[in-house]
């Protein structure tokens, strides 16, 4: 049997091939949507703005994902976490999935896996365990979207309100979560203060865009507010933590 290496070149290459596939899929959909948008008369200028603002917005959350790769890499080496967090997963799923698989096998998550069988079992559990969303989308998305469209056809206004309500439900759940620790004392309020600062920064951006007519800022208001609030969370945590 080969010597087992969590960071073997074969594992890196396999992960790399799958990640290239996913990039290819993104490029494919990007080109198709761009072309169709141009056909519909949406200006290239607008599309470029959308693309630019998406790039800038993505940077901070993507860097946070690297942190997740680092966390999991102590236990699983680099290739598997690199793949799992680039494709399909989020740390909120991958970490518990890996932990649960490790617990079932009776291995600690605090040190690197040394047994190839343990490694392959964990890799299979993480892959098979977190698949249902993709399977359902592949099989049923057409039906789901058809349902939404027929809802809109019956009553356009209600169709719009329905989608807005979905968004509000999601935002409400995450906003509520921010308040989860407030009964734990001042420290528990830190996320709330960060949220408020982010909101205030967004309002200031809105003032610049709408009143002072600083048009370019409109595209970057969300990343500016987000990064500003993240930066200010550092002194806030020092003060209250």
């Amino acid at each position: 049997m080969r010597d087992f290496d969590l960071n073997s070149i074969v594992l890196f290459v396999t992960a790399g091939v799958i990640i290239l596939f996913v990039i290819a899929q993104s490029v494919f959909f990007l080109r198709q949507a761009w072309r169709r948008a141009r056909e519909l008369g949406i200006e290239a200028r607008v599309l470029r703005r959308v693309a630019r603002s998406s790039v800038v917005f993505t940077i901070a959350p993507a860097i946070a994902i690297i942190l997740g790769v680092i966390t999991l890499s102590r236990f699983l080496g680099l290739p598997l976490p690199w793949l799992r967090l680039s494709v399909l997963g989020a740390l909120t799923y991958e970490l518990p999935a890996a932990t649960s698989a490790a617990a079932a096998l009776g291995v600690p998550v605090s040190e690197g896996v040394t047994d190839p069988k343990t490694y392959s079992t964990i890799a299979w559990v993480m892959t098979l365990g977190i698949m249902s969303g993709l399977i359902i989308v592949t099989l049923f998305l057409k039906k789901i979207q058809g349902g939404i469209q027929s809802l809109k056809k019956r009553d356009t206004r209600w169709g719009e309100i329905f989608l807005t309500a979905l968004f509000m439900g999601m935002i409400s759940a995450f906003l509520g979560m921010i308040f989860a620790d407030i009964t734990a004392g001042l420290k528990g309020w830190i996320p709330v203060f960060v949220m408020i600062i982010s909101s205030l920064l967004m309002l200031i951006c809105g003032f610049f865009v709408k009143v002072l007519k600083v048009k370019w800022m409109e595209d970057y208001a969300l990343p500016i507010s987000m990064l500003g609030a993240m930066a200010l969370s550092i002194p806030i945590t020092r003060l209250l933590g």
């Binding site: 990640i19 996913v22 990039i23 993104s26 490029v27 959909f29 990007l30 198709q32 949507a33 761009w34 169709r36 948008a37 519909l40 949406i42 599309l47 959308v50 693309a51 603002s53 998406s54 790039v55 917005f57 993505t58 940077i59 959350p61 993507a62 860097i63 994902i65 690297i66 790769v69 680099l78 690199w82 967090l85 680039s86």
Partner: peptide
């Protein structure tokens, strides 16, 4: 279309940033 474009761009950027990170 706009949603697809933004998600595609975001996916590509995320993947590239993680590659750089690794």
């Amino acid at each position: 279309l706009i949603s697809t474009i933004s998600i595609a761009v975001s996916s590509i950027v995320t993947t590239l940033i993680i590659i750089a990170g690794v």
